[in-house]
Every structure is written in C-alpha cells, then in structure tokens.
Simulated assay, not measured.
Amino acid sequence: MGLHKILRILVAILSVLGVIFLVRIIGEGDEAIKAAAAAGDSAIVDPMAYVAYIVLGIILVFVVFFVLKNLVTHTASLKGTLIGVGLFAAILIVSYAVSGGDPMEYKYNNKLATETESHMAGAGLIAFYILIITAAASMLLSGVKKMIK
C-alpha cells in the first residue's frame, strides 16, 4: 500500500473523529462546557484537542522532512538558506545582548518573573522590532524599485 493511500486513510479517520467530537461539543452546549470548565472538568473538549495535536504533529513532521529533503536535493539553494538562518541567529544574539535585565518585578502565573525570564521577553521584543522594521524596509525598497523601473 502506497504512502498516498495510507495518508488518505489517516486523513479520513482524523476527519471523522474531528466531526464526531465537534458534534459532541455542540450537543453539550456552551453553558454545560463553561460549567464543566469552572469545575475543572475538560473531558468534553479534550478529545478534540488531542485530534488537533495529532494533526499538528503530523504537519510538523512532514514540513521538517520535506524542507530537509529539499535542502539535500537542491544544494544550490542551500547557501541562501544557510545565510538566512545565520542572519536570523545573529538577530537573536544581538537582541539578547542588547536587552538588559529589568529591575522591575513582574508577576507571571502568580509568581514573580525571574530576571532571566524578563531578559528573554525583552530579547524577543527587540528581535520582533528588528524583524518588523526589516520587513517593512524590504517591502518599501521593493516598491520603490518597481516604481523606478
């Protein structure tokens, strides 16, 4: 049996399970689900979440597999990919180096956030700002180049 048939059967099974669990959730109603959640019972929603986790896991496996396969088979694009990954890593390193520990105390999950958690959050924000500015600048430059030609 080919991979295509196996995947079709897996998709069919997950689809049927998803529909069954969705009908069960809709059948219970919002108030029953909210009351159960307030009591700490999530048995109504859990099976649907597990189906979603399985689908996400399958997608991640296939994405990683085909990306690595493409990198190995098309070595011409490997250089550009490695440059992109290196630049992204450099942005993360610079962001971590630039962000400092925050002397303020923040609550996180009813606990005080540690200095490391604060440092990582700051680094993530700085990396986001760098990446968004880079994306905006590249779109702007692309638009200007098209207008000039």
Rank of each mutant, 00 (worst) to 15 (best):
A49Y: 06
V67S: 05
L131N: 11
K107V: 15
A123C: 06
A43H: 11
V16P: 14
E31M: 09
R8S: 14
G18M: 05
L60D: 08
K79W: 06
L22K: 01
I33F: 05
S118I: 05
G84V: 02
Y96N: 06
G86K: 02
L60W: 12
A113Y: 04
A121C: 03
I126M: 11
Y96C: 00
A37L: 14
G86C: 04
S138L: 14
P47K: 02
E31W: 04
A90H: 01
G100L: 06
S95W: 03
S118K: 15
D46G: 00
I6E: 09
K69S: 11
V16E: 10
I20R: 01
A135F: 11
V55K: 03
I33Y: 05
V19D: 01
L60F: 14
Y53T: 04
I91W: 00
E31R: 11
H74V: 08
S95C: 05
E28Q: 08
G101M: 07
E28P: 00
G27L: 03
E117L: 07
I6D: 06
T81Y: 11
G2I: 07
I130E: 03
L87K: 09
K111E: 10
M147F: 07
S95Y: 03
L22Y: 05
L87Q: 06
V85C: 03
D30P: 03
G27T: 01
V19I: 14
S77F: 06
A36I: 00
A12W: 08
I25K: 01
M48H: 02
H119M: 05
F65N: 11
L10D: 10
H4C: 07
I126K: 07
A135Q: 11
G27Y: 02
Y108M: 13
A12G: 15
V63D: 10
S118N: 14
S118R: 13
K107M: 15
I126P: 00
A32R: 10
I58A: 14
A52F: 10
L71W: 04
I133G: 12
A37N: 13
I91S: 02
L56M: 13
H119R: 13
E105V: 15
F128W: 10
G122T: 06
F88E: 06
G40Y: 08
L17P: 06
T114I: 02
Y50S: 05
A123N: 06
I26S: 04
I6H: 10
V19Q: 01
I13V: 15
L112H: 06
I133C: 12
Y53M: 11
I58Y: 10
H4R: 14
A135Y: 11
N70T: 13
A36D: 12
F65I: 10
V64R: 12
F88I: 09
L60E: 09
D30H: 08
A37V: 12
I54L: 14
T73P: 00
E105L: 14
G80D: 08
A135V: 12
G100R: 07
S42R: 12
G80T: 10
Y129E: 12
L3E: 11
E31A: 10
L131G: 04
K34I: 12
I44W: 04
G57F: 14
D30Q: 09
L60P: 00
